[in-house]
Amino acid sequence: MEWGRAQAYVVPLGVALVVGGFGAWLILALYRRLAGKDRRRARIGRMLGPPLALAFPLLLLVPALQATPLHDRWLEQAQRVAHIGLTGCFIWLLVRAVAAGEKAILRNHPIEVADNLEARRIQTQTRVLSRVLMGGIIILGASLVLLQFEMVAKIGSALLASAGLIGLVAGIAAKPVFGNLIAGMQIAVTQPIRLDDVVIVEGEWGRIEEIGSSYVVVRIWDERRMVVPLTWFIENPFQNWTRRSADLLGTAFLWLDYRAPIPAIRAELERICKDAPLWDGRVCVTQVTETTEHTLQVRLLVSARNSGDAFDLRCLIRERMLDFLAREHPQALPRLRAQMEDAADTPRRRMAVMADPDIRSPGAEDGEPAVG
């Protein structure tokens, strides 16, 4: 009698576990065999492997539980656990599918090329939208799991009954979360920033290294990382040096003496640019942009393919131009001038100024000028 009762439980559950375990072992063996292969079928198999290995035994466990003489209450609880496990496997599979699709798109649009504007646009949209989609799938799956519990379902009904007040409180509490979510959607669609864009944020020069679901990582030029909320790029102005293209103009300023030979400087700048691989061949201009009582300001305007090349080209031009001036035209470098007077001539000059009324400003003084 006892064995007969136990047999009613052991046989269906044992068969389900043995067959399910063997099937999971086969799936995992195939998964390990596909590791390292880069064909499309192999990638799909690796994406399906772990979730299916866990879901297959649970799928066989549901009919096996129904074949046992369990009471309705215990059967319902056991089946609920199996259904929660299957729901989790399905959500896991969807998340892995989104991640696999993201990797496939990123693989087909690499940014390690010279003209990567279109690739950076696609990669930015793909990364942001995939993270938003993953977050939505996880939230939906957690909601489906929680709603299978009667207590949570009752709480949900009560929340719907008082949706006005609860919605207001929840909206205020979740403002940062939903604000970043909406900002991520805006960035994905309008793309004020993209991966590998050169930006100026809070006075720091850097590149967009990562765009997450709630923040952006900016790699500063000295290898520091600045973490900025997504909403910051929607609510604050910033500079994007690669919005349409990476081409950039760079300037190098020189303060020179009035005797500086501008034509020779212009010819030397053209020679430096032609010999420099950093120059892209578009702009090479020498202009006098300012004059002061002591010096004149010369602007050397050049162009480069990107901001990094522009910075290096500006440094190169300053160095070689100063070397050229010091070697060929030392009189062009700024210097301080002073005029010395003979001490014996000073009293005679002062008396001459006082004796000549024409050199005084009219109405400058009411009386005679002081002598001494």
Rank of each mutant, 00 (worst) to 15 (best):
S162T: 14
E235Q: 10
W279L: 13
L34I: 05
M134L: 09
M151V: 12
L75V: 04
A188C: 07
N180W: 00
G14V: 00
R271Y: 07
L300K: 10
E319M: 13
G4R: 01
G156H: 08
G250Y: 11
L140A: 15
L278K: 11
E365H: 14
W205E: 15
Q148V: 06
L34E: 09
E150W: 02
V217H: 11
Q287M: 07
G23L: 07
D196H: 05
T289C: 03
C315R: 15
D196V: 05
T242L: 02
I262M: 09
P263R: 05
T231A: 10
P229K: 02
T126L: 06
Y215K: 12
P50W: 07
V302M: 01
P357R: 01
L106V: 13
I187E: 04
G372D: 05
G135P: 02
E102K: 10
S157H: 13
T346L: 15
L58I: 04
I317G: 08
E368A: 09
I44G: 07
W74M: 10
R335Y: 04
G21N: 03
D345E: 13
G136R: 01
V228I: 15
F238I: 10
D366K: 14
E204W: 09
L75W: 00
M351H: 14
A29H: 02
R299I: 08
D342Q: 12
T124E: 01
T231L: 07
G212H: 07
A64F: 06
V198H: 01
L336G: 10
L316H: 13
P192Y: 09
V113M: 03
R107F: 06
I166R: 02
G88L: 08
P261S: 14
E2L: 15
L336N: 11
E365M: 11
A104G: 12
A24Q: 06
R33A: 13
E319G: 11
I44Y: 03
V152N: 08
E235W: 13
R318Y: 03
I91D: 05
W221M: 11
M354V: 11
P334G: 06
G49Y: 00
E223D: 01
